[in-house]
């Protein structure tokens, strides 16, 4: 059971309050009908699936209800950080420096 920091509640809380919600920073195209079949396929199905830091979405579904973003290491399962939906993708190098 992981502990997850909700950036809206500003509290670190147990995993049962949260639900995973897929990869982050994949915005729905403003005009889907303008996309080629290949572009739409990529939007629908193609995900980065990295070994290591993954930008992903969680929802504090049994809490404040908000979707938010997180950086989590897919090898260790550890969260590097969480941040609010709509905020830009954080710079991982800066993150690493801050941790050191």
């Amino acid at each position: 059971m992981l502990l997850i920091h909700c950036p809206y509640c500003d509290e670190t809380l147990p995993e049962p309050e949260f639900a995973y919600a897929g990869e982050a920073h994949i915005a729905r195209p403003a005009d889907p009908m303008a996309l080629s079949d290949e572009e739409w396929r990529d939007f629908l199905f193609i995900r980065s699936n990295p070994r290591g830091n993954h930008f992903e979405r969680w929802r504090h579904v049994n809490g404040c209800g908000r979707f938010f973003n997180a950086v989590r290491d897919t090898v260790s399962d550890k969260f590097a950080m969480t941040y609010r939906a709509g905020e830009p993708r954080p710079n991982l190098d800066a993150l690493k420096e801050a941790a050191e």
């Binding site: 059971m1 509640c9 809380l13 147990p14 995993e15 049962p16 309050e17 049994n62 809490g63 404040c64």
Partner: peptide, 17 residues
């Protein structure tokens, strides 16, 4: 409840499981 309820101050609340 998995969260630490002791840390919930009197007069406060939370949605949880």
């Amino acid at each position: 409840i998995a969260r630490d309820v002791r840390r919930l101050e009197v007069g406060r609340g939370a949605r949880t499981v």
